[in-house]
Write a protein that binds this DNA or RNA. Structure first.
Lengths: 266, 266
DNA sequence: CTATAATGTTAGGGCGTCCTAAACTTGAAG
DNA sequence: CTTCAAGTTTAGGACGCCCTAACATTATAG
């Protein structure tokens, strides 16, 4: 439950007395796990989600962050599976009350689904951070390891790992770690591609899934916290010239779009 | 994301565990089904075993340690599944060359199966040790956590954990940890039940699966390394009286049979 | 050396997850 | 408004792993 309180009763669309608010159904933010006799189709003992389901929820969460509902094909490509398989699974997720779903219209996480997604994301990022800080894992390999471990660790272990590395707020790639309570910073950052010529910016996050990209970024000195000056940008989506530390380098748009930054004054 | 999609079977060559002392291997009399039949790629690149398969191999290894071939029902009860399910799985294990199997005659690990089992056992025990030593896990809870993690960790992570806690030779319950190369101390220890009255012995290992038992053992001071004097033994499989440290206690045969010891000279 | 008990296997299902092929929806372009 | 491509769903399979029932084999006891 990240968005404090959120919508339940407070956010009704004003005076309109028309008591036919469409299928507001899925919203039903029935508190935690308990009964929820009315809306909930079939209960899922929390913590009983399969690895697959957790992967779907994570994927859907990620897609929703960049727009409205998650489309079948987007989910499919993010998970590297066939779109047809997604259709089937999505129905099951809906049956479990984790997503709301209208055929041909995409998927949205319910509050329950969102919480489950954030729990998995927390696990993933805590594990990544722990591996890097406590076990000296290189930052380009923590993702793959966390991808498997996130489905196997207990809440207790995650909490112990988090506290062992000082309750970190971001993972090694700069992504925010949800709290135990499911609160996460959802600020959208712009990427290096959005930075104007002459602008200085500070790297906040980098895409973490591509190991090779991460190794390259490390080599040219780009990691969260580093300040970058975009000194030149070739036209037609050409390469950008960057000043990083006391060196400089040129990067293509594919890389630039994977580096998130915040603009610095002046 | 997890890349499923196992179409072009192009996985890593699965780093072979270096110096393996000769593979006496499956050259045994008429190995059931040695190689993959033509056509269907039924070969299993090592390291691609499912969690279930790893559990079976571990169970079979454990049963073989206490006698010859592993019986279907023993495997079933160790894994808490129906005997019929074991029959089916065992056939699949044989197809993969992990066990040799003769109907109605029980199962034996092949050399390949044995190595796989030991790798899983190494993972399990390294994880247990790491959790206890590096993260302060209580010894009665490491087993359950390791039981899930053992199927998810990479070899690299296991090695890093092992080296972080000083390449331990035993887990927190005293069980020997196989080396990377699959070498393990298979000495059979006697249990407290086998100790004669007046004998002193040193605890070497304790059964690790029962969390309650472990808590109780901790309470009465029994852990690997501790010296115990068996001062009294009631007849008819009755309780034993032990001197542990400067205290004394009485324990029943169920507990005594779960504590492994080595006898001390008088 | 038979009965019967213990043990093991086959038959027939079910669930979860994935796949390909084929049909259907939707939305945008003509 | 029709047409078509892109996106989505259904149909029909497959595989892994589990289950219960029923049947087969082996072991044991009289």
């Amino acid at each position: 439950m990240t968005s404090r309180k959120a919508k339940p009763a407070t956010k009704r669309p004003a005076a309109s007395p028309s008591a036919v608010p469409s299928a507001a159904a899925a919203a039903a933010p029935s508190a935690t796990s308990s009964a929820a006799p009315s809306g909930a189709p079939s209960g899922v003992p929390p913590g009983e989600l399969t690895a697959s389901v957790e992967d779907y929820l994570k994927a859907i969460y990620g897609i929703e962050q960049g727009g409205g509902a998650a489309a079948t094909t987007d989910i499919a490509s993010k998970l590297s599976i066939a779109a047809a398989s997604v259709s089937g699974m999505v129905r099951r997720l809906a049956d479990q009350g984790l997503v709301s779903y209208e055929r041909y219209r995409g998927v949205r996480l319910t509050e329950t689904g969102r919480r489950a997604a954030l729990r998995t994301i927390r696990r993933h990022r805590v594990i990544e951070t722990y591996l890097a800080q406590a076990l000296g894992y290189p930052w380009d390999r923590v993702h793959a390891e966390a991808e498997r471990l996130e489905h196997a660790v207990s809440d207790e272990l995650v909490d112990r790992m988090a506290s062992a590395v000082g309750e970190p707020e971001t993972d090694p790639h700069g992504h925010p770690i949800p709290t135990r309570e499911g609160v996460i910073d959802e600020t959208q950052h712009r990427t290096l591609s959005d930075v104007a010529r002459g602008q200085r910016s500070r790297v906040t996050r980098v895409s973490d899934e591509d190991s090779e990209l991460l190794r390259y970024l490390a080599r040219i000195g780009i990691r969260p916290g580093v300040v970058v000056l975009l000194s030149e940008r070739a036209p037609f989506d050409g390469p950008l010239t960057l000043q990083v530390g006391k060196g400089s380098c040129q990067v293509g748009p594919a890389l630039a779009s994977r580096v998130m930054v915040e603009l610095l004054p002046d």
